[in-house]
């Protein structure tokens, strides 16, 4: 079973919630897994780590056009839906624009002259750490790579056998977020009671409803903003799983790369209840 921790707006506390949930969950669910799906900016291993057991390179195919074999017919250029082929027949020039290529294979399919082959390009890395009987998996895309989606998909596949896996999701609502939440059985949304976060969480919820994913919300720093968010959640019958107070101590502990539940026992109980509430909610949705 997979539980995604997501938000829409960045910086509302996804990684904070995922890592603290992981810590309390270890005592409850043997072989619990945590997966850092924010492959652009992975942060989970700054809070929890283990012994490095496996490192895997994620690659993607990259077409190469042999200008000798090319007849400059233009079919690959026509087939490429991403404008990733620079085609100048007058001066007999043709090349692939690496940054725009989506690795779909249409150009290879199009070429009738065997002029297009594919080579392999590294786009990221997956690192798996063993931590007691639990596992921590991190997806990390190379700087400069346009889409983290292939890395995210592969990263999540690593925990297909875990009884429960917590997926720390990327921000936003576009492809990286979708690649993560579509794999989840339940989504925990972390939000703040501010106009910015409410505006973003509403769109996130619209997205989850469109793909039929059950979810609940956590209101982080519940006392810093206004009541608009909470009132809206109540009016929409959305499950509020937890309201976390604003506490300067939380911000300080987080900034040091420590887990709140390790240093503040009163929060341990709060996260334990949250873990139980999430599991209970998933049962309810089944």
């Amino acid at each position: 079973m997979k539980i995604a921790i997501a938000s829409g707006k960045g910086g509302t506390g996804k990684t904070f919630v995922s890592t603290n949930l992981y810590r309390v969950g270890q005592k409850i669910t043997p072989q619990l897994a945590i997966v850092d799906c924010d492959a652009e900016e992975p942060n989970v291993t700054q809070f929890v780590s283990g012994t490095n057991t496996k490192q895997e390179t994620v690659t993607q195919n990259l077409p190469i056009i042999d200008a000798q074999a090319c007849t400059f017919c233009g079919k690959c250029y026509e087939y490429c839906n991403y404008n990733a082929i620079c085609f100048l027949p007058q001066i007999q020039k043709i090349s692939v624009i690496e940054e725009l290529c989506h690795n779909c294979g249409a150009c290879v399919y199009a070429c009738e002259h065997g002029a297009i082959t594919e080579t392999i390009k590294k786009i990221g890395e997956i690192t798996t750490y063993a931590h007691n009987i639990n596992i921590i998996v991190e997806g990390r895309v190379e700087v400069g790579v346009a889409s983290p989606v292939p890395v995210i998909k592969k990263t999540i596949q690593c925990v297909n056998n875990a009884p429960i896996a917590l997926l720390d999701s990327p921000p936003g609502i576009s492809c990286p977020f979708i690649a993560t939440v579509t794999q989840a059985d339940y989504v925990v949304l972390v939000t703040e009671p501010t106009p910015f976060a409410l505006h973003n969480v509403r769109v996130t919820i619209e997205t989850l409803q469109e793909i039929n994913k059950p979810f609940g919300v956590i209101i982080n720093r519940a006392d810093i903003g206004n009541n608009e968010s909470k009132e809206w959640f109540i009016s929409q019958n959305i499950d509020i799983l937890l309201e976390l107070p604003f506490d300067i101590r939380i911000a300080q502990v987080y900034s040091h790369g420590e887990l709140l539940v390790d240093v503040e026992p009163r929060y341990y109980d709060m996260f334990q209840d949250l873990y139980a509430a999430i599991i209970q909610n998933i049962e309810k949705w089944k």
Binding site: G10, G11, D38, E40, E41, E99, V141, V143, G144, V145, A146, S147, P148, P170, P171, G172, S174, P176
Partner: peptide, 10 residues
């Protein structure tokens, strides 16, 4: 700008 380092940021 957006968060992250991939396509919309680029």
């Amino acid at each position: 700008g957006p968060p992250g380092i991939a396509c919309p940021t680029i």
